[in-house]
């Protein structure tokens, strides 16, 4: 994998990589991509892509509200709060 491509991917994932990490990852990701390219060689002409294996279609639910009562428990696990808001560093 080109290093520039790796760095772009890292940037999209909001990951900060230093030189050393980038070099190390470049080798590992290249190996992964090679495995994918092996898969790409398989002939799938005329096959519909399988996106899930449950084969069950139209799993829907009616529009009726439920209450999980989890809201407070979930909020308690938040690192920083202000009243009921979750607070994070400024990300504009």
């Amino acid at each position: 994998m080109e290093k520039s491509e790796l760095l772009k991917t890292a940037a999209l994932a909001k990951l900060k990589l230093d030189e050393q990490e980038a070099d190390k990852l470049a080798v590992e990701v290249t190996a992964m991509l090679e495995n994918f390219s092996l898969m790409m060689e398989a002939d799938v002409e005329g096959l519909e892509p399988t996106t899930q294996t449950l084969q069950q279609e139209n799993r829907t639910r009616s529009d009726s509200p439920g209450s999980s009562n989890l809201s407070n428990d979930l909020l308690d696990r938040v690192p920083e709060r202000e009243d009921r808001f979750i607070v994070i560093p400024n990300v504009i």
Binding site: T60, D63, S68, L70, L74, R84
Partner: peptide, 24 residues
């Protein structure tokens, strides 16, 4: 109230499964 209508699905907790709203 902020963050009162939240659950493991819409907060993206691992293992939570979405299901589609018929009205939507």
């Amino acid at each position: 109230e902020p963050n009162s209508n939240v659950c493991p699905v819409c907060l993206g907790y691992p293992g939570a499964l979405p299901s589609l709203n018929e009205e939507a």
